[in-house]
């Protein structure tokens, strides 16, 4: 019962949360939280559901951001159709890269995604004619529908990205209750057995990869419109690792996990602002500790707690049955 209402409560809390203060910096952090949540939820499809480790995800976030920025700058493309285009372009890159990389399994796949991510990062840095290089693109127009209605405040962006996070989280939830989702998990748990049951392992992974990269692209596009500036920095190694930290520390393969992971990331980034470069060391340590001591991520703590009562009753029943 509790589990049924928890998501609704969480959404209600998220809706009223920004009203607690008019502090715009707090609102800004909330926007980052939501956009990173969307990004982490998308990576979770790859890392959590089909069980492949991808380091390249920041690149697709960047591709989406740059697609929106370039379409707006060079072609006067309006915001909302631009979001769609950003998703399509990032998904198309995801298709091509996934098509090449997903045939290869294990550590080589991880290295390939790192390679592709670095190539895209470097290209963005050096293809100055298209991307303006390390300077980045600034003065990106805010999201809007024509001139009359524009998202102008952080609050507007927060509600937009919250809407997308809720919609995508629901889609992930539905996925896990569908035939397609069972195929994802089957591929993750035992690819050979999955194939023997009729699952096209490669196509299933590719579907997951394209969906994940397309959603990352949309998140990137909103990020670009919101900040009005985009630089290649969003595709750097720091970001590649950051998204993985959100998913793994939060709890891969769950819906609450990546959202919690994004919150922790944004929160810690603020708390540790004074420590400068040391931050990355702390994040890396966090990832290591989490992988060793809490492989299910922080959400698994909750589950452990919630399961304890049911486990005990099951054992009780066994004892009574004379085990």
């Amino acid at each position: 019962m509790m589990a049924r209402f928890l998501p609704i409560l969480a959404v209600a809390a998220a809706l009223v949360l920004p009203l607690a203060t008019s502090n715009t910096y707090f609102h800004h952090l909330l926007v980052l939280w939501m956009l990173y949540s969307l990004l982490a939820l998308s990576l979770n499809i790859i890392v959590g559901y089909i069980g492949e480790l991808s380091f390249g995800h920041a690149a697709f976030f960047g591709i989406g951001a740059y697609t929106a920025a370039i379409l707006g700058m060079n072609f006067g493309f309006p915001g909302f159709p631009g979001l769609l285009m950003a998703g399509i372009v990032a998904g198309a890159f995801g298709f091509v890269i996934g098509y090449v990389a997903l045939r290869i399994e294990g550590p080589q796949f991880v290295i390939l995604t790192l390679g592709f991510g670095s190539i895209i990062f470097t290209t963005t840095n050096y293809w100055v004619d298209l991307t303006r290089g390390p300077m980045g693109i600034s003065n990106i127009a805010p999201l809007g529908v024509g001139a009359g209605f524009e998202l102008s405040s952080a609050l507007d962006y927060y509600y937009l990205s919250l809407l997308l996070v809720v919609a995508f989280a629901y889609a992930c939830h539905a996925l896990m209750l569908s035939r397609t989702g069972r195929a994802f998990i089957a591929v993750r748990e035992n690819a050979q057995l999955a194939a023997s049951l009729g699952v096209d392992v490669f196509r299933t992974k590719l579907l997951a990869f394209v969906v994940a990269t397309a959603v990352a692209g949309v998140a990137g596009a909103i990020f670009a419109h919101y900040l009005t500036v985009i630089t290649p920095e969003v595709m750097s190694l720091n970001y590649m690792v950051a998204i993985l930290i959100m998913v793994i520390v939060g709890g891969r393969g769950t819906i609450a996990g990546p959202i919690l992971g994004a919150l922790i990331y944004v929160g810690l980034l603020e708390l540790l602002r004074a420590t400068g470069a040391l931050r990355m060391v702390i994040f890396a340590a966090l990832l290591t500790v989490s992988v060793i001591f809490l492989p299910g991520g922080l959400v698994s703590l909750w589950r452990r707690f919630a399961d304890r009562s049911t486990v005990r009753t099951a054992r009780q029943a066994q004892v009574e049955a004379g085990e």
Binding site: R179, A183, A186
Partner: peptide, 19 residues
């Protein structure tokens, strides 16, 4: 769940229908 995953071949509705 092991066995549920194995019904893959005989079923056909996809992700969209589940949404």
């Amino acid at each position: 769940d092991n066995v549920r995953a194995a019904t893959y071949r005989t079923k056909k509705t996809g992700w969209m229908a589940s949404i």
